[in-house]
């Protein structure tokens, strides 16, 4: 169902500004070292992970493959700019609930692809999205359970050029349609209980900041959806903080447990401070 989108201007947050600068600096570095870089391997990807792990999670222990979280992606990317990734959470393995899931793509210019906050009692067991992958790399999902423990799953993918290469395939159209949102509601195949499945689509170029303006030779600043929240009434279902590793036209599909008949509300904002809001009635039947 197409929705009316309100666009508001707001000041750029210092965090977003910092992110933009960081991405910009990393972008310069990546482009300049592009000629010398060899292909990544599972071992070199692991090295990158070990060097950035502490910056993201401090010295906290991370348990690998204990079944709380599982990440899946194709072994070889078809289109490196649109790589489907599925993250599964197993409530039976984490009865206390999962609070956050962080998705990391080791070798990308901005390795922290997204951090998802999962609403309490949201009932989410599966999140799928699409990412850019710049080279052969591990994609990791790290779930933090309510007890503060970290659980990880990883999968190696062969891809190249997702961030620096194919920006918008049709760049003029991408800018013109920015902010348009679409929400599809499905009956869930994930969960037999009262869950339903949502697919949220946002038109946004999600510029990587790794492109140059052909006339000025300056880098085009990164411009991407950095915050997103989906709620039913006042109840948070899923929030995301993301970066340039999320594909153009960010796309999220996830199951959740609806409560009552309150509408679904989405608020997204980008690094230029544009805010996009929309609301949809709950359409699939809920037995409550």
């Amino acid at each position: 169902m197409p929705a009316k989108v309100k666009v508001k201007r707001q000041a750029v947050s210092p965090v977003a500004h910092y992110l933009t600068l960081l991405v910009f600096a990393l972008g310069v570095l990546v482009v300049l070292t592009a000629y010398a870089s060899a292909q990544q391997t599972p071992a070199s990807s692991e090295q990158v992970w070990l060097s950035l792990k502490d910056d993201v999670f401090g010295d906290r222990a991370i348990v690998l493959d204990d079944g709380v979280v599982r990440v899946e992606a194709p072994k070889r990317a078809q289109d490196a700019a649109i790589v489907p990734v599925d993250i599964f959470l197993d409530p039976a393995k984490a009865p206390e609930g999962v609070k956050t899931v962080t998705m990391i793509i080791d070798v990308n210019p901005a390795p922290v692809a997204a951090k998802f906050d999962i609403g309490k009692d949201a009932g989410i067991t599966h999140i799928s999205t699409r990412v850019r992958v710049n080279d052969y790399s591990y994609i990791r999902a790290i779930a933090e359970t309510a007890d503060g423990k970290l659980h990880m799953s990883q999968t190696f993918i062969k891809a190249s050029g997702g961030c620096s290469a194919p920006a918008a395939k049709n760049s003029k159209e991408a800018l013109a349609a920015m902010g348009q949102m679409k929400l599809r509601q499905f009956e869930s195949t994930e969960n037999m209980s009262k869950a339903e499945e949502l697919q949220l689509m946002i038109r946004h170029p999600n510029n990587s900041g790794l492109q140059r303006d052909p006339l000025t030779q300056y880098f085009i600043p990164a411009h991407f959806v950095d915050k997103l929240s989906v709620s039913q009434g006042d109840r948070l279902i899923l929030a995301m903080e993301g970066g340039i590793s999320i594909s153009e036209d960010p796309n999220f599909r996830f199951d959740f447990t609806a409560q009552g008949k309150e509408p679904l509300k989405v608020i997204a904002s980008d690094t230029e401070g544009k805010q996009f809001e929309s609301e949809w009635p709950l359409t699939t039947p809920v037995s409550n």
């Binding site: 482009v31 592009a34 000629y35 870089s37 190249s160 050029g161 620096s164 290469a165 194919p166 920006a167 492109q211 140059r212 303006d213 052909p214």
Partner: peptide
């Protein structure tokens, strides 16, 4: 070409 050139040369 500006967006993809460096990537083409590398890959």
């Amino acid at each position: 070409l500006e967006a993809r050139g460096a990537f083409y040369l590398q890959s």
